[in-house]
Nucleic acid binder design. Structure first.
Lengths: 340, 340
DNA sequence: GACTGGCACTCTGTCTTCGGGAGTGCCAAC
DNA sequence: GTTGGCACTCCCGAAGACAGAGTGCCAGTC
């Protein structure tokens, strides 16, 4: 059995009221607050159907109704028109971002901005190395057998790593390595580097090969294989907004989940198309986040995507507003990156 | 009136029991659990004195006693012998730190280690720039008018900043600047650089001076004046351990405080002597942390101190254990830094 | 003078009881 | 298909009762 328009309208009303009041919503209150043009009894019938279909449920007999994950899903997919941002919000974004000095700065400001605008927990992933290209590699000697490898990417990330050499390396050799490494790798996508690095080693004169091999292994290990992702997080205090009720009693599981980079990356990190994505409750596939929803989006200069960002809040969140904000911020950050 | 030995012993017993049970402790339970050698009535008299002196208080009439901030203070200052770490903990530290690859890695592992061992919120400050020396400066051209300035310090930190030039700069000039900047600044304490940078500008040929001035201003502004401090945080989930009761009802204020870098720096960042410092409740001088205590310590290679680290928990925490752990970890990190 | 046992008193936390209120499901009528 | 009516269920808050824990004080003892 399919749902007619009025039933959908009832569902929308339930979601809206519940998000606003945090209390199960009954048939009478519903007809009073919305112009449904029918009586409470009729609404009750509709509710019975909606419940049977799994879109709403009763916390207990003789209580009002509450949307289920599926209900929110339907709401988001079919009953939501994205609100345009208010001018105030638009201004807030601009004001927040004026005068950024580097990538770190961009990321930190973005994450705070997101947390503040959505009043939820915000996560921003640094531009992923695997989607970046090498701009420059630098070798800085620390001692005769140690040097620091610094990589700068076209997305502005700077990564460094200590390289332990098998034996003393004269400055000239370092210099030469530096030249050759840059010649070979500068401008290349990181994803493409493994082969090039191997070639580099092969082309090295046998007497210097151990040293180069050593450098190469660090390059590969740290910059490609370990595929180092970084994150920024802000707004955890917003979790307490609903007075702990939002997350079935304890924040514990949520806070625990937020500490795991792997989990966060999974939440915001699958950057398929450039649309905003919403994951509701169980859809997150993480037990600790059963009662949380995540709105996320990829960002990047122009049409390409280099990283993800998003917010996490209770399933009972203002989806239209949150989606609009996340989308707007992602776009703004992308533009900012394009400028550099 | 001063406190005799038995009264101090009673206070210690109260603190210990309260920390363990989380419940106000009464006279009867006290004599049962500790060998005080006197009757409950006597203990009650002692308690009355301790209360008058402000070391303990009653949540309500006819409830047991709870230590006040002053009580914890006295406990920490005079009644605590630092427990040596258990071999298990010692091993945990070693195991956690094996195979670190760079500074980021050290800091992140340390903060997680601290959180795990103390079961509290941990904070680690990156080695402070102002206490570091320049090891190397690198200039990487991004376009004809832009370059990235990368600074590597002797503590392993790598900072970068975008420099916008007043006009196109030929590669040779960049090269020359790079050489001169390094010549002048390498090996210098960051605190000493401002004068040197100024000299550098003065000694530049007039036609190239605007460019150098531009670089100089970025150097000064970002690396010295803004004195960029960085932090890592872990273990916020541990705040929920006491079931929210620990922090008078809500975690909100605590979480909010933890979001403010400035506050965190203030908590762990005054690195005077190398001793471990304990701040209890109000001593933090931050309203939001009225019911929290902070145990912190400076760390650094050898006797010098380059940064701070610490943990934050409820005033009702295991001080001896926490102090021992923080101290041990700080020392360990210092040694690690000394090796590099 | 310090300690102790006894006792009356106070306060909390918990449990139970009890309506009021909100909301439902069902049914008969329109 | 919609509506008004009605009986039923269940939550929630208030009020009362009660056990338990702890205290302060006092008189007696060493």
């Amino acid at each position: 059995m399919s749902l007619d328009d009025r039933k959908l309208e009832v569902l929308r009303a339930i979601v809206q009221d519940y998000v606003e009041t945090r209390e199960p919503v009954g048939s009478k209150a519903l007809v009073e607050r919305h112009q449904l043009g029918v009586s409470p009894a009729t609404v009750r019938n509709d509710m019975a159907v909606l419940e049977e279909e799994g879109y709403i449920r009763q916390p207990h007999t003789s209580a009002g109704r509450v949307p289920t994950d599926a209900g929110y899903r339907l709401f988001v997919d079919r009953l939501t028109r994205i609100k345009p941002l208010s001018p105030a919000e638009r201004r807030a974004i601009e004001r927040f971002m004026v005068g950024v000095v580097d990538l770190d700065d961009v990321v930190h400001r973005t994450v705070r901005l997101l947390a503040q605008l959505t009043r939820q927990v915000a996560v921003v992933q640094y531009p992923s190395l695997s989607r970046s290209a090498v701009r420059h590699l630098e070798l800085v000697p620390i001692s005769t057998t140690r040097l620091t490898l610094v990589m700068i990417t076209d997305t502005g990330r700077v990564e460094q790593r200590l390289v332990e050499m098998p034996g003393p390396v004269p400055p000239d050799d370092v210099w030469e390595m530096r030249r050759r490494v840059n010649e070979k790798l500068a401008g290349q996508k990181l994803a493409d580097t493994p082969l090039l690095v191997q070639k580099l080693v092969d082309e090295t004169a046998p007497d210097r090969r151990p040293t180069m091999a050593c450098l190469a292994s660090v390059l590969l290990e740290t910059l490609v294989e370990r595929s180092e992702e970084r994150l920024a997080l802000a707004g955890t205090a917003n979790l307490t907004r609903g007075g702990v009720l939002d997350f079935q009693g304890t924040l514990r599981p949520v806070l625990e989940a937020l500490e795991e980079e792997v989990i966060l990356l999974k939440l915001i990190g699958d950057l398929e198309p450039s649309t905003t994505r919403v994951r509701i409750g169980d859809e997150n596939e993480i037990d600790n986040l059963r009662s949380a929803s995540v709105v996320s989006s990829g960002y990047g200069p122009g049409a390409t995507i280099v990283g993800g960002l998003g917010v996490l809040g209770p399933t009972r969140m203002d989806y239209p507003g949150t989606i609009a904000t996340v989308r707007a911020v992602a776009r703004y950050v992308g533009d900012l990156l394009a400028q550099n």
